[in-house]
Simulated scan of single mutants.
Amino acid sequence: MARLPLAGIRITDFTWIGAGSYATKILADFGADVIKIESSRRLDSLRMAAPYKDGIKGVNRSGYFADRNASKRSITIDMKHPRAFGLIEKLIAQSDIVANNFTPGVMERFGLAYEAVCRIKPDVIYLAMSMQGSSGPEHRYLGYGASMAALTGLQHLTGLPGREPAGTGTNFPDHVPNPCHAAFAVLAALRHRRRTGEGQYIDLAQTEPTIALLGPTFLDLTVNGRLQQPNGNEHAWAAPHGVYPCQGVDRWIAICVMDDGEWAALIEVLGNPDWACEEALRRGDARYARRAELDAHLGSATARWVAEELMHELQAHGVPAGVV
C-alpha cells in the first residue's frame, strides 16, 4: 500500500461528538495516527447514539460514533486521576498535534492550555474548536451544530416561505464547514512548521466557517440592499427547480433545470406534454415567472414514474436529477 500523505503525524485527540471528531477523522483517513482520548467517567456521548450494529445498544456498537471515529486508535483516561497528567504529558511529547473542541476553560482545568502544552512540545500544533473562539464576550457559550446553524441564520434560510425553519436535515456545520476548515488549517500549520520549525495555535470559532457558507447572502444585503428570505427549493432565477413526487410512498426526485437546453431535454423525456410545449416556456424568464404552475404540472408528470428510472433517463439526457 502506498504511504499516505500524513503518515508519521501523531494527533492527541480530545475532540468528541461532532465537528472535532470529523476533523481528526479526515486527518486519520490521510494517514495520521490519531489517538482519541475519552474520560473513563464520561465517554463520548455519541457512542450511545443509534443506529447500532445488529440493533443492539452498546458503547462499541454505534454506527453514528463509528462514522466520525474510523481510522483512529483510542484510550480512556480519567483526567481527574493523579497519574492522568503524567500519561498525557508523555503522549503529547510524542505528538505533532493536540486537538480539542471543548468550551474554553476545559483544557485549562486539565492543565493543558496552549502555553502548558508548548512547554511539553515546543513546536506543537494546537487546534481549539469551540463555538465562539477562545476570547470575546460570548466565548464561554456552549453550542453544537444545530445551535450554530440557528445563530448564523443558516436555519432561517433553509425552509419554506411563511413556515417554521426546516433546517438542513442534519447538523450541517458539524459535517462540512467546520471539520473541513479545521483540517485545512492543520495542514497549513504542518506546512508552516516544516518550513520554519514553528508550531501554531489554531483558534477556530465554529460559527465563523458556518457564516462563510452565507457569503452571497451577506453580499446581497450589503451590495444590493436585499435581505434574503427562505425560499424552499426554489432557485434565484432558474425553473423548474425543486423536489417532485414519484411512484410509491414518499418517493421523490430532485430536478434542476438551469438553462433552455435542459428544459428541452426534460420535456422530451416526459413525452412533450401539452402544458410544456408553449413557445414562451422556451425562455428561462418565462419559466421562472410561472414556476409555481410548472411545479404543479411537473409533479403530476413525475408521479407516474419510478424515481430511479426517471433519474437515469434525465441524467442520460443531460438534466441534473437525483433520487431523494
Score class of each variant (00 low, 15 high):
residue 11 I to Q: 10
residue 315 Q to C: 07
residue 210 T to K: 04
residue 178 N to T: 14
residue 178 N to K: 03
residue 304 R to W: 05
residue 141 Y to N: 13
residue 296 A to S: 06
residue 240 P to R: 01
residue 220 D to A: 10
residue 86 G to K: 13
residue 197 G to V: 06
residue 112 L to T: 09
residue 39 S to V: 11
residue 142 L to S: 14
residue 37 I to P: 01
residue 253 I to G: 01
residue 306 V to N: 13
residue 120 I to E: 01
residue 76 T to C: 10
residue 224 N to Y: 02
residue 4 L to P: 05
residue 291 R to G: 04
residue 138 E to L: 14
residue 281 L to H: 02
residue 177 P to S: 15
residue 135 S to E: 12
residue 274 D to V: 15
residue 253 I to H: 02
residue 209 P to Y: 08
residue 198 E to P: 01
residue 11 I to T: 11
residue 123 D to A: 13
residue 62 S to E: 03
residue 153 G to P: 03
residue 50 A to D: 01
residue 90 K to D: 12
residue 171 N to R: 00
residue 232 G to T: 00
residue 54 D to T: 04
residue 118 C to F: 00
residue 13 D to Y: 10
residue 79 M to E: 08
residue 207 T to K: 02
residue 15 T to V: 14
residue 25 K to T: 15
residue 65 F to T: 02
residue 214 L to H: 01
residue 245 P to I: 07
residue 66 A to F: 13
residue 78 D to M: 05
residue 21 S to V: 05
residue 276 A to H: 08
residue 42 R to H: 13
residue 272 N to A: 14
residue 270 L to H: 13
residue 58 G to C: 02
residue 186 V to K: 04
residue 107 M to E: 10
residue 79 M to W: 11
residue 278 E to S: 08
residue 144 Y to V: 06
residue 13 D to W: 10
residue 145 G to R: 08
residue 249 V to M: 11
residue 299 G to I: 05
residue 182 A to V: 06
residue 94 Q to I: 00
residue 275 W to P: 10
residue 142 L to Y: 09
residue 106 V to F: 12
residue 256 C to K: 08
residue 130 S to H: 12
residue 273 P to N: 09
residue 61 R to T: 05
residue 320 P to H: 04
residue 234 E to Y: 05
residue 221 L to C: 01
residue 321 A to W: 02
residue 35 I to F: 07
residue 307 A to C: 08
residue 173 P to I: 03
residue 142 L to Q: 14
residue 264 A to Y: 12
residue 204 L to K: 09
residue 38 E to H: 07
residue 47 R to P: 00
residue 291 R to M: 06
residue 302 T to A: 06
residue 275 W to G: 11
residue 51 P to N: 06
residue 239 A to Y: 03
residue 159 G to C: 04
residue 153 G to W: 11
residue 34 V to S: 09
residue 87 L to P: 01
residue 58 G to M: 02
residue 29 D to T: 08
residue 69 N to Q: 00
residue 11 I to W: 12
residue 307 A to F: 03
residue 310 L to N: 05
residue 84 A to K: 07
residue 269 V to M: 11
residue 94 Q to P: 00
residue 127 L to D: 04
residue 71 S to G: 00
